[in-house]
C-alpha cells in the first residue's frame, strides 16, 4: 500500500530506522546523548516522578480525528493493520473552524471502543483536497488485543509477514534488557506509518501507576537506568 508522496519532516529517515534497534543497547543510548549532554542541550528523555493524588477528571480518550488524503485508502489500512471496522462515513459537512471549508468523516471502531478514530478528508472552498502535514502530533497509540508483551510481539511479527513496514520496534519502553530502549512507561510497542505518515503505535502491557512505583520506588530520571 503506497504512502502519500509528501513526507513530513518528522518522519524517521530509512537510515535512522535501521539504527533504531540499537537503542536497546545502553552504550548506544549514551552515545546518542553524548553530544547534547556535552553541549548542555540534552533534554531528559525520562519524566520525573509524579504523583496522582486524586482521581482524574478524565475517564478515557473518546475519539481522535485525523486528516487523510483518501478515506478509502486509509480505511483499508486501518482495517488490515489495526483490525478496526468501518462504522459509517458521513456526507460532506462544514468544517467547524474554517469557514467555507468542508469535511467528510469516516468513523472507525475497535472491538471495545466504538468510533474511536475518525478519518477526515478536508477540502478548501474551491474543492481542493488538503494534504495532511503530519506535524500536529508525534504519534497516537492503539492497544493491542490481549494487552500482553507477547501479544505485541506477535502483532509485530504478523505485520511483517503481511508486508507492512515497522518504523520502530518492537521494543519495551523501559531500561530493562533485552528489549528496553531507555524510554519510560513500560509499554511494549511497535510503530507503523499509516498512508498519510501518521505514526501509529501499537502497544500493550503498559505499567500502571502502582507497578511503576513498585519497579522504581523513589528513583528519578536517569537513576532508573
Amino acid at each position: 500500500m503506497s504512502n502519500s508522496a509528501f513526507i513530513p519532516p518528522n518522519v524517521l529517515p530509512p537510515l535512522l530506522q535501521k539504527f533504531a534497534p540499537l537503542l536497546k543497547r545502553k552504550w548506544f543510548r549514551e552515545l546518542v546523548l553524548l553530544w547534547p549532554t556535552l553541549t548542555r542541550r540534552r533534554f531528559s528523555n525520562k519524566t520525573e516522578d509524579y504523583g496522582v493524588f486524586k482521581p482524574s477528571l478524565v475517564g478515557h480518550f473518546g475519539q481522535l480525528a485525523v486528516y487523510v488524503q483518501d478515506i478509502a485508502r486509509s480505511r483499508i489500512w486501518y482495517q488490515k493493520v489495526a483490525g478496526l471496522t468501518h462504522s459509517r462515513t458521513s456526507d460532506p459537512e462544514p468544517h467547524p473552524s474554517k469557514p467555507g471549508w468542508t469535511l467528510r468523516a469516516c468513523y472507525m471502531s475497535a472491538k471495545e471502543h466504538d468510533e474511536c478514530l475518525v478519518l477526515l478528508e478536508e477540502r478548501d472552498p474551491s474543492g481542493k483536497m488538503s494534504v495532511p502535514s503530519g506535524m500536529s502530533f508525534f504519534h497516537f497509540a492503539l492497544e493491542v488485543e490481549g494487552n500482553r508483551k507477547e501479544d505485541v510481539f506477535a502483532f509485530a511479527a504478523q505485520q511483517k509477514r503481511d508486508g507492512f513496514h515497522l518504523n520502530y520496534g518492537p521494543v519495551q519502553h523501559n531500561s530493562e534488557p533485552p528489549d528496553g530502549d531507555g524510554e519510560t512507561g513500560g509499554n511494549v510497542a511497535c510503530y507503523l506509518y499509516d498512508p498519510d505518515w501518521h505514526n501509529v503505535e501499537f502497544c500493550g502491557a503498559m505499567d500502571t501507576i502502582e507497578n511503576y512505583r513498585a519497579r522504581y520506588g523513589d528513583k528519578k530520571g536517569s537513576d532508573r537506568n
Binding site: L57, V58, H60, F61, G62, Q63, S133
Partner: peptide, 13 residues
C-alpha cells in the same frame, strides 16, 4: 501545526 489532526476527545468521568 494543526493540519494533520482536527481534534481529540476526552470523556469525563
Amino acid at each position: 501545526d494543526n493540519n494533520s489532526m482536527l481534534s481529540f476527545t476526552l470523556a469525563m468521568r
